[in-house]
Design a protein around this nucleic acid. Sequence first.
DNA 1: TTAGTTGCAAAGGCTTTGCACGCGC
DNA 2: GCGCGTGCAAAGCCTTTGCAACTAA
Lengths: 136, 136
Amino acid sequence: MSDLLGRLRERGWRLTAQRRVVAEVLDGEHVHLTADEVHARAASRLPEISRATVYNTLGEMVTLGEVIEVATDGRAKRYDPNAHRPHQHLICSRCGTIRDVHPSGDPLASLPATERYGFTVAAVEVTFRGLCPDCS
Amino acid sequence: MSDLLGRLRERGWRLTAQRRVVAEVLDGEHVHLTADEVHARAASRLPEISRATVYNTLGEMVTLGEVIEVATDGRAKRYDPNAHRPHQHLICSRCGTIRDVHPSGDPLASLPATERYGFTVAAVEVTFRGLCPDCS
DNA sequence: TTAGTTGCAAAGGCTTTGCACGCGC
DNA sequence: GCGCGTGCAAAGCCTTTGCAACTAA
């Protein structure tokens, strides 16, 4: 838990029951959920919440930079509330589960100047793929 | 051009006009195309080619390991014919240009065993983001 | 010949949108 | 009360699938 809701409130976010539930669901999970999974969990607390609202809310959190959108291949996007701390992802090729990992070393350093082609490199995304314990 | 078509032929791939055109379109391009862009280019040479065939063909090349599927931030997947050599992507955040770059070490080694959580790690994708010379 | 490939159209999964109602501020 | 947020349903985008006709080997 990292008080995602508190940070959003501080930024003057208009607070509604739906938004609170979405933020709480995301923040309380250690795996990264799809929009539909967020909707399912949110609906168990607030039955009338609609899918559209979940999508709108997630999209806004992404725009605000409080949540990261992770595109796995082909499947639904997943949402990562851990935007405030640098980390990388370990994704199961079979079931799509995502785990956060914290490798050693600075991944930016792995791109030598001679390979930058004049680009100003600002960030790097690292995604490890394989099979999770349940799928292997 | 890296003779993608030749490699496919050597593997006993059944050769049809449609497949040849798809392979040629991919191999001749230095940018990474979406399935729809591949279809558009292929159709300019072979007007009757269908989208389904393009999708089937791309999917097969991916299965054969001759082409890599890249999920960028946009919606549609992109297809990268450079599967024969390990490489990474450098993407301009503003104009979307994608460049292939080559790693200086083995990126898999950056994930220690204690951070693998029982996963069988098979591959790693590394994407650098920043501004290209024209946009910075 | 014959198993594998194609085109068409329809279905499917995920996400966005239009609009009227409702609610936080 | 005002303006943004919400729900519903329908549309949208990208992709896959079912099936009959076709064709490379």
